[in-house]
Computed example of a mutant assay.
Amino acid sequence: MSEKVSIGILAVQGAFAEHQAMLDGLGADTFLIRQKKDLEEAVQNGGLQGIVLPGGESTVQGKLLRDLGMYDQLKELIEAGTPVLATCAGLILLAERVSNDDRAYLKTLPVSVKRNAYGRQLGSFVTDAEIAHIGTYRMNFIRAPYIDEILNPQVETLAIVDGNTVAVRYKNQLALSFHPEVSEDARVHAYFLNEIVQGV
Rank of each mutant, 00 (worst) to 15 (best):
D24M: 12
L193N: 05
Y170N: 10
F125Y: 12
A129W: 01
L65K: 07
G119K: 02
K114N: 11
Y105F: 15
V161A: 03
E130Q: 14
R143M: 00
G135V: 06
L48G: 03
P83S: 04
I142V: 12
E96C: 12
G69L: 09
N116V: 08
A15T: 10
S6G: 08
A15D: 15
F16T: 07
T108K: 00
L93K: 00
T30H: 15
I160H: 08
A17E: 15
G8M: 05
A80Y: 07
G8Q: 11
A132Y: 04
V113F: 09
D102K: 15
E156D: 06
G25S: 05
K171T: 08
D67R: 14
L32V: 13
E41Y: 14
R169I: 09
V113Q: 05
G81I: 04
P110V: 10
R120Q: 05
M70P: 04
E130R: 09
L94D: 05
D24F: 12
R34L: 14
F141P: 02
T127N: 00
D38V: 09
G47V: 04
E57A: 06
S58G: 09
E40Y: 12
V111D: 03
V197G: 15
N164P: 12
Y146P: 01
D29W: 09
G47S: 15
F16W: 13
H133Y: 14
L94W: 07
V60D: 03
L85Y: 06
V12F: 06
R66T: 13
T82F: 04
I160S: 10
Q61P: 10
D148S: 08
R97T: 02
L48F: 10
R169L: 12
A129M: 03
R187D: 04
I142F: 02
Y170P: 11
G81N: 05
P54A: 01
M1P: 10
E41Q: 14
V98L: 10
D38Q: 11
T108N: 02
V43M: 11
